[in-house]
């Protein structure tokens, strides 16, 4: 747009471009080269994409469970928006996994129109999911969900900011878009964290116990899986251990504003963890609910 002409805003080519219906949508991956980088093992790339995609998918599913239950209508919409952002990140990541290694995609009845990313989301068994366990724990109350979202988005934002430099053009493009989304998610969670910690005695108590409940899942975020290390060396992925300093700095800033202290971090995370397909007891139930409709209609067209 020519900044010198105020009329330009009125004469865009699209005659439907009025406020009531947003227009000008664009595809993040349009024009992005989807060739697989030669330096990267295909099966490892697929596993890595599943890890990042499953983190987003399972977090989206937990956030979606707030729909109809949130304390205010506006918060409900906000949480659903965040869930949709994450679902939008999961889609191309799972599709990338399927492209890199088609053997990861569960087989469906012949003629099924279900695309590979949906097959991965809705037809894998719980053990095949690679998400960190932080994403799958029960929502708890709004305070606990806020703490979990703060931890998740702080960690994921630090990861995505580095992933923008990936030698895999698709991972880089997905990360570049997601950085803006997750920055908002982090801001949303941090504001509620501080507001509730500094609110009433009851809201502060809940925020402190939310912190206690979520904190045991923090250490796992920074334990590098073999695949993450190899991808980092190949220039396609990020070593999660490198994210710790950024994460600690942000959390310290938010906690200082809230005048709350995170509990001491356990020296070692329980291994094997979510990256190896080992999940908590609540996870199978979550996956069953998430997949129930798709599994009932394996030839469904959505």
């Amino acid at each position: 747009m020519d900044d010198g002409n105020a009329y330009d805003g009125l004469v865009e080519a699209d005659p439907d471009a009025r406020w009531a219906f947003g227009t000008g949508f664009h595809d993040t991956l349009a024009g992005v080269d989807d060739a697989l980088p030669p330096s990267v093992d295909r099966a490892q790339l697929a596993t890595y994409c599943l890890m990042l995609g499953d983190d987003a998918l399972i977090m989206a599913q937990r956030l979606t469970q707030w729909t109809t239950c949130a304390p205010e209508l506006e918060e409900e919409v906000a949480l659903a928006n965040i869930a949709l952002d994450l679902l939008g990140q999961a889609g191309p990541l799972l599709a990338r996994a399927a492209l890199a290694d088609p053997t990861t995609v569960p087989s469906l009845p012949p003629g099924s129109p279900v695309p590979p990313q949906d097959a991965l989301a809705f037809f894998r068994d719980p053990r095949q999911f690679r998400n960190v366990r932080l994403t799958e724990i029960e929502n708890g109350d709004f305070a606990a969900s806020t703490v979990r979202l703060l931890v998740f988005s702080t960690w994921r934002l630090a990861l995505l900011q580095r992933l923008v430099g990936s030698c895999d053009a698709v991972l880089s493009a997905v990360a570049a878009k997601a950085v803006k989304e997750v920055a908002y998610h982090r801001d949303y969670a941090a504001r509620w964290f501080v507001t509730l910690a500094q609110g009433t005695q009851e809201s502060r108590r809940r925020m402190a116990s939310g912190l206690e409940a979520v904190w045991p899942y923090v250490q796992e975020l920074f334990v590098a899986h073999r695949v993450e290390l190899d991808l980092a060396v190949a220039g396609a992925g990020v070593d999660p251990a490198k994210l710790r300093a950024d994460f600690d700095q942000v959390i310290a800033t938010v906690c200082a504003a809230a005048e709350l202290h995170p509990p001491p971090t356990a020296s070692a995370a329980a291994t094997p963890g979510g990256r190896d397909g080992v999940h908590s007891a609540a996870f199978a139930e979550l996956v069953t609910e998430m997949q129930s409709v798709a599994r009932a209609h394996p030839c469904g067209r959505w």
Binding site: M1, Y7, D8, G9, L10, E12, A17, W19, L73, E74
Partner: peptide, 18 residues
């Protein structure tokens, strides 16, 4: 909400906030 530079802000509805 203003859709684009060059258009007016248009009333779209109301919300509650603290």
């Amino acid at each position: 909400v203003r859709a684009r530079r060059g258009l007016n802000h248009v009333h779209v509805g109301s919300i509650h906030a603290a």
